[in-house]
């Protein structure tokens, strides 16, 4: 997590800032919060008295709920702000909006925006931490982190190992296919960076019109137009959501044709190895990028991704806002034994 100038706050704007060590640290802290999530009262006082704003300038259900749940389980006060109910529509600039909210006393902004780079701009403007919750086609770092968390969790279970004993070595050589609209996908950009940093072998599979114009500097092992040829050789098949407007003729002849060539149908899913996993960031377009019965297979981790999302976002908020706070202000380390050790290390 980077530190930018204003007020010396820490931000999470891009996976690129974390490196393998940073990712590993977040995954380890997430373990503790997964444990918290299993308690009868899944709440800890770590961020009591802190205020987190979710600033969403784009439609989103699960990411917003996930962040707000995470913040509330950390006992932070949560303010929710969306474009529909704000003065942005009255012509107020993003900067004025953000500064106005910040003036109310905010410790962290969780920003979702249609413009790539919007969280970076917010980080320049406000005296608070900023978490990128998805910016345009750029990045969605917490999605990639929860995806990595989920992969590691499943691999640990299969190996019969405790999570604490499972580092990130399990990613080395892991064969992951990311399938679909990579060009317009912030999820893909974050995931490629995260998996690449951890040593996975990433293959992009997409029609040419949905690949980015340049892949220079991307940590990829290959790019393919042929999903059938790739599927037998992957450990994880990660499907991206296809926005329906891409099928209107400008990028694809039709959604139907996309589905025929790149959808994970039952027939295609049968090409996967027995242990291969299927993932999707949601929300799924059933029958387009993923067949309904494929989504229901045990190998599909979609709901597990969602449930891990809360713990991973708790870890991110805690690491941005909570460090140095544990053990002060009445929330002693005794209340949070697992984190006391993880964070101390």
């Amino acid at each position: 997590m980077t530190e930018l100038s204003k007020g010396g706050h820490r931000h999470l704007l891009s996976i690129a800032e974390l490196g393998a060590d940073g990712i590993e640290e977040i995954l380890e802290v997430s373990d503790a919060f997964v444990e918290v999530g299993r308690r009868s009262i899944p709440k800890v006082p770590s961020l009591r008295g802190r205020t987190v704003v979710t600033l969403f300038a784009e439609q989103s259900t699960r990411t917003r709920l996930s962040f707000e749940t995470a913040a509330k389980r950390l006992s932070a006060d949560v303010l929710s702000f969306s474009v529909d109910t704000s003065s942005v529509k009255k012509g107020e600039s993003l900067r004025d909006t953000v500064e106005t909210v910040a003036a109310m006393g905010v410790d962290a902004f969780v920003v979702r925006h249609t413009s790539a780079g919007a969280p970076a701009a917010v980080a320049r403007w406000v005296d608070a931490s900023v978490v990128n919750a998805g910016d345009g086609w750029h990045e969605h770092p917490t999605q990639a982190l929860l995806d990595c968390y989920t992969i590691r969790q499943v691999l640990a279970e299969r190996a019969g190992r405790a999570l604490e004993d499972t580092g990130v070595e399990c990613f080395v050589g892991l064969r992951v296919a990311i399938v679909g609209d990579v060009r317009h996908s912030r999820v893909a950009r974050s995931l490629v960076l995260a998996l690449g940093a951890l040593g996975a072998e990433v293959t992009l599979v997409a029609p040419g019109s949905l690949l980015p114009p340049s892949l220079e500097g991307w940590p990829l092992s290959k790019v393919s137009y042929d999903l059938d040829a790739v599927l037998p050789h992957v450990d994880v098949c990660y499907l991206l959501r296809l926005q329906s407007e891409r099928g209107a003729g400008a990028f694809l002849p039709s959604v139907r044709e996309y589905s025929a060539w790149y959808g994970l149908t039952s027939r295609r899913a049968a090409l996967l190895g027995d242990d291969a996993l299927v993932m999707h960031p949601g929300p799924m377009n059933r029958g387009i990028e993923i067949a309904d019965d494929v989504a229901a297979l045990p190998r599909s981790l979609v709901l597990r991704q969602v449930s891990n999302g809360v713990a991973v976002r708790m870890a991110v908020l805690f690491m941005l806002l909570g460090q140095g706070q544990v053990g002060t202000g009445g929330s002693g380390p005794g209340l949070l034994p697992t984190l006391g050790t993880v964070v101390g290390g």
């Binding site: 086609w137 114009p213 340049s214 991307w218």
Partner: peptide, 15 residues
């Protein structure tokens, strides 16, 4: 400019 950086940054490019 459409290229390495626009692709990385997720910004629509001008070739």
């Amino acid at each position: 400019h459409e290229g390495e950086w626009s692709s990385r940054l997720g910004v629509p490019g001008i070739p």
